[in-house]
Amino acid sequence: MADLEELYREIILDHYRNPRNRGELEPPAVRAEGFNPLCGDEIVLSLLVENGTVADVKIAGSGCSISQSSGSLMSAAIKGKTVEQARGLIATFKQMLSLGDDDAIEEGAEPVPVNLRSLGELAALQGVVKFPVRIKCATLSWNTLAQGLDELAAS
């Protein structure tokens, strides 16, 4: 039960019940969709970048508490940040979930020390580590963000 309480921290339930930055943005905002076929989680990310800074971000979609709260927490974390800082957060967040660049979960690997303080409220999602199947739920919005940023860089 202790693990379960680690997974469903109050802050996660709060972001699930009252998601921040909910909705979609019109162009020129970039739109990216992420999908987790395992449980049908869906994230629709709208991202408006001006002068290299995330000027606005909205999240739509539906899914489990972990995927949706992760999206909500992410939107709050990246708003006002530079693209560079947002990419840095993606990397730190994945590192917290013991994921390398290739998303591979190494069996029995020693957790890499992460500067949890730099993640702020996002650190609440750390409890997901003990539930391997749910890691995909937690990373869905972050992979979608990476996809959106890649699209921006390519355009």
């Binding site: 039960m1 379960l4 997974l7 469903y8 019940r17 449980c39 989680d41 899914g63 489990c64 508490s65 972990i66 949706q68 539930f131 749910r134 739920c137």
Partner: peptide, 14 residues
Amino acid sequence: DGIHAHDVAQILDT
């Protein structure tokens, strides 16, 4: 209502 199936299954597991 308001609880995703994945969360239901996770709590049931405990």
